[in-house]
């Protein structure tokens, strides 16, 4: 089995590659990235997804190696310094990858997404199933790029029914060396929250995330899957489990302070997080369990505790 991976040095790539290395059925890992990761099975092709000619390089690499599955993991989770660059990589990069995948008649495509793409809205049901609309978040480019990518992937899926396309919507990843907005939020000593609100949050232990990605290599299903950890926690509980203290602030004050900081260029928290601190956004992991065979091992508590240990 030959597996191609974009963004192998990113958050998800780092989780997946060791599992692929250990998988005896995987004979080669074709890495399409700007940096070469370590690994015996790795075959490195330097591809810059943000370049306009990336699509041709991708198609060549995919057809040359007769790749069985492509993991498109080139997404940003670290602090984003340049919004347009992130947009370029995620949206335009995905466009390139999808075109190449279509050309190469790829049998399987796996794309990660976020449960945050559902958006934290007042009209969310208690548990969001995969068919719920992706409402995104009006203030967040980070989230809205993911929503856009999902739209592209779904369109691709309709056009290429013979390509098994899996979208894995991950709950916020927490782990010892994970870097994403939620992990950064929880690693503060004091986390501001909205007074009078305590929405339910989910989290996913990095190990579970890696397992889910690996399961997608053989799963006999396609479509979107919510990949969430066991159980839910109210935001305050999650903060406490991560070893921090929640500090409930009155909404208007909090909002004004965040906007002011944002304007001053000293944004310490993404303004978009306010929505996620206001309404619950709990995704239902039932489909991943029944169709993908993914059963989370770690409870949200453990995931948060893993963050504390780091």
């Amino acid at each position: 089995m030959r597996v191609a991976v974009t963004g192998a040095s990113g958050e998800f790539g780092k989780l997946l590659l060791p599992l692929l290395e250990r998988d005896p059925n995987v004979e080669r890992i074709v890495v399409l990235d700007v940096a070469k990761p370590a690994g015996d099975k790795v075959e490195f092709h330097r591809v810059d997804l943000t370049r306009h000619d990336a699509e041709g390089e991708l198609t060549d690499a995919l057809t040359e190696h007769a790749v069985d599955a492509l993991y498109h993991l080139a997404f940003l989770f670290g602090p984003i310094r340049s919004g347009s660059m992130a947009h370029e990589l995620e949206v335009v990069g995905t466009m390139n990858v999808l075109t190449a995948a279509g050309r190469a008649r790829l049998p399987r495509l796996v794309v990660p997404s976020l449960t945050a793409a559902y958006g934290a809205r007042g009209n969310n049901p208690a548990l969001l199933r995969e068919e719920a609309p992706l409402q995104g978040c009006p203030h967040s480019r980070f989230i809205n790029d993911k929503v856009e990518v999902e739209g592209q992937v779904m369109a691709f899926r309709e056009r290429h029914p013979d390509t098994r396309t899996l979208v894995l919507r991950f709950a916020p990843l927490l782990g010892s060396d994970v870097d994403n907005p939620v992990a950064r939020l929880l690693s503060r000593a004091v986390v501001p929250t909205l007074l009078g609100y305590d929405p339910l949050w989910q989290a996913l232990h990095a190990e579970d995330a890696a397992r889910a990605l690996h399961l997608a290599l053989r799963a006999n299903a396609s479509g979107a899957f919510n990949i969430v950890g066991r159980g839910v926690l109210p935001l305050s509980g999650l903060i406490r489990q991560a070893g921090a203290r929640p500090l409930p602030l009155p909404g208007p004050m909090f909002r004004a302070a965040l906007h002011a900081l944002d304007m001053a260029g000293a944004a310490t928290l993404p303004v978009a997080l306010l929505d996620y601190m206001h309404y619950s956004w709990v995704a239902d992991g039932e489909r991943a369990e029944s169709a993908l065979g993914f059963v989370p091992v770690h409870h949200v508590r453990d995931a948060a505790a893993a963050l504390r240990r780091s």
């Binding site: 208690a126 548990l127 929250t193 909205l194 007074l195 009078g196 609100y197 305590d198 339910l200 159980g231 839910v232 926690l233 109210p234 935001l235 305050s236 509980g237 903060i239 406490r240 489990q241 929640p246 409930p248 619950s280 709990v282 239902d284 508590r301």
Partner: peptide, 18 residues
């Protein structure tokens, strides 16, 4: 404390009952 949003509860089910 729960009402104010600082409970830190850990035994919450998916509907939110603690």
């Amino acid at each position: 404390r729960t009402g104010l949003g600082a409970s830190g509860g850990t035994r919450v089910d998916e509907y939110g009952k603690d």
